[in-house]
Amino acid sequence: MAHTVKVLPAAAPCGDQETGLDRDQPVCILIRHCRDMKRQETRLRLLTMLLLLGCSALYIFTLCAELRNREHQSSGDHRAAGPHQERLQTAVSSTEKKRFNIHLRQNHSVPKDTGTDERYIMWKQIIPEDNQCDQTRKDIVIPKDGVYFIYIRTSLFCRNATGAASSNMFYMQLRFWNENYNESRVLTDAREVVSCPPVAFRTVSVQQLFDLSEGDHVSVRIGAGYQLINKADFGAFLVEG
């Protein structure tokens, strides 16, 4: 029995082919699949491009908004710079006022006993005006634990009316005590030999950092040469605490 085959033109599409040969069907399916893949790829590229453009626009918008906000804040800070600076200076000044600082000077209204050494110097308070020292010996009372800078400066003077040369020992101690142990201790001391021709001047000073506790009473004790003192200054201020 004879078979007849209908041959289509070569340019005819796969969907229009009518053939009895099964070998043409996979080729047509593959061609349609490739076309679908290209369409999907094109759509994905368009969607990706639109997404990138949207993100870029959002980033630029956010950046511009932040810049405008900073300019607005800067202009507001500039307008308020005057009052703000005044408040800052007031706060700093208030903090400085609260920091412990005291300066004492020898009280010349207290008569010197010419026959007595080994005594504490009596002081009158110069800075600040409020009372921050003990009334009995005018000790400096430490208000809180911390590191303090303590200084003593004594100006010594002697006059020898007879003109005979003489040597005088000057011995000074910086001492402290606290009610917790109630025992006077030496922080530091200084010694100096003062030679006295007809007129002699000498300065003896001590300055040092000390780690002190709240309630410590700091005082200056003269072991020898009290009558040589012409002028004395004593002070302390809080460095860290």
Rank of each mutant, 00 (worst) to 15 (best):
G241S: 11
R119K: 11
E18Y: 04
K6P: 00
A161I: 12
R99Q: 07
F149P: 00
N107H: 02
R23C: 05
L156P: 01
D216V: 13
C34V: 10
R87A: 13
S219K: 04
M1S: 11
R119V: 14
C133N: 12
A10I: 12
E86Y: 04
Q89N: 10
R153N: 13
P83S: 07
N168E: 15
T95C: 14
Y151S: 12
L51N: 06
A232N: 04
L52C: 08
F176A: 05
L238G: 03
L47A: 15
F149E: 02
W123Y: 03
A161K: 11
S109P: 00
H108E: 06
V27E: 09
S155L: 09
E71Y: 08
C133Y: 05
L21V: 08
D211A: 13
P198F: 03
C14K: 03
W123L: 04
R119I: 12
P13K: 11
E192H: 15
K6S: 13
T114I: 09
L104W: 07
F176G: 04
L53R: 06
M172V: 15
Q132L: 14
R159K: 12
H78V: 05
R87S: 10
L30G: 05
S184N: 04
R99L: 11
D36V: 04
G20H: 07
V220C: 09
P83L: 06
C158R: 02
V5P: 00
T154H: 05
D216C: 13
C133T: 14
D189Q: 14
A11G: 14
M169S: 08
E41F: 09
G163T: 04
D77M: 10
N178A: 06
Q125P: 09
K124A: 06
I140R: 02
F157E: 05
P197A: 14
M169V: 10
Q207M: 13
S56W: 04
T203I: 13
V92M: 08
T114P: 00
I152P: 00
I140P: 02
E214L: 01
A232Q: 02
T203M: 07
I121Q: 03
H72G: 05
V147G: 00
I102Q: 01
T4K: 07
E179T: 11
T136F: 05
P13E: 08
I222N: 04
N160I: 01
T188V: 12
Q207V: 13
F176W: 06
V186P: 00
C34G: 01
